[in-house]
Amino acid sequence: MTNINLPGPGPADLLARHPLLQGLPSGMAPEVAADLLRGASPLRAEAGQVLFGEGDEALHYLLIESGQAEVVRYGYNGDERVFRVFEPGQLMAEAAMFMPHGRYPMQARARSALLGWRLSRRSLHDACRRWPDLALKLLAALSKGLYDQVNKVDWMTSSSAPERLANYLMGLHERQGAMVTLPLNQRQLAAHLGIRAETLSRLLNDWQTQGYISGKRRQWAVHDPAHLARLATTAKRPF
């Protein structure tokens, strides 16, 4: 990664649009953003470049300006599992800034050419001490992340392979529209959904034959969202 001057909106504008700073008392957001950006540095990474390694000292979290990044772990057998893909405007690894062991729990790398910003752990801690409203917003976001993971574990242990795939595709459909691009290759997606790669391939082929979807590799068109939504309903919780 190389420090450079980046084009584009800049980190202050990106932070101003982030949910962490939305809803703060009037006039507070610019000062909070300035505190969070103290000691920040720009970065550029090429596709596949490691941004930080599992077990590295967690000194920075990242703000994505353009491109995509992902967090991955490798199993004892060497299999790679992608846990999450990060998009422009999102913060990455902010939870790691508060872990007692002070290390990144996963590896992060750029999925594509990436522009972003490294934000300092120390500045985040200082800003939380100075701005209790920021600390509460951050705590709420981290709590929601934990709640989402609890729901995901529950869903993964009680759902069928078709329900999991339908829920995943409907999430993409809501964000991208009728034409969806899978952020993971099919082997990674199978691991993410906790199903066999052969099962995923069979489901995609069967649904394509039945006219629910069409496409190949990472590009798919959703033709019958109502059918997929019915399959995915058990993933929806009332709160």
Rank of each mutant, 00 (worst) to 15 (best):
L36N: 01
L36D: 07
L36W: 00
R38L: 10
R38P: 05
G39P: 09
G39Q: 07
G39F: 02
A40D: 03
A40T: 04
A40V: 04
P42R: 02
L43A: 13
A45R: 07
G48K: 01
V50K: 01
L51V: 03
G53C: 09
E54A: 12
D56F: 04
H60P: 01
L62E: 11
I64L: 09
G67E: 06
A69P: 01
V71P: 09
Y74P: 00
G75A: 06
G75Y: 04
N77F: 00
N77Y: 02
E80P: 06
V82K: 02
F83R: 14
V85I: 15
F86M: 11
P88S: 02
G89K: 01
G89D: 12
E94D: 14
A95C: 01
A95T: 03
A95V: 09
M99K: 08
M99W: 03
M99I: 03
P100Q: 14
P105L: 06
S112D: 08
A113H: 14
A113R: 09
L115A: 14
R122F: 10
D126Q: 13
D126L: 10
C128D: 06
C128Q: 15
W131F: 13
P132G: 11
D133W: 10
L134V: 03
A135L: 08
L136P: 03
K137A: 15
K137E: 15
L142K: 04
S143T: 13
G145I: 00
L146E: 06
L146N: 07
L146W: 06
L146M: 14
Y147K: 10
D148Q: 15
Q149I: 12
N151R: 14
K152R: 15
K152T: 11
D154G: 10
T157K: 11
T157D: 14
S158A: 13
S160V: 00
P162D: 13
E163T: 12
